[in-house]
Amino acid sequence: MELQEIKERIYQFLTKLKKADGLEYDTELFKSKYITSLFALQIVQFIEKEFRIKLGRKDITEANFHTINAMAELVQQRLSGGR
């Protein structure tokens, strides 16, 4: 799957959780208080379901979730079978 498409799908989901208000692929989601931990949880569940991947304990880090770009890279790595 193209990285761009992954980003687009995650973006769409985030706007269902919260009004888009200037959301970009590189918006710092935690620093801008864009997501609370309630929504963080729903994002993890969405990503696993939408892309049919299983994330392990080690994947659940702020570094992997701080922007849409970071999430999309994590997803693409998993989809291509990489670690």
Binding site: A40, V44, I60, T61, E62
Partner: peptide, 11 residues
Amino acid sequence: RIMYITYKLAG
């Protein structure tokens, strides 16, 4: 697991 995710993404 939900609780673990809550902690981790809360910092």
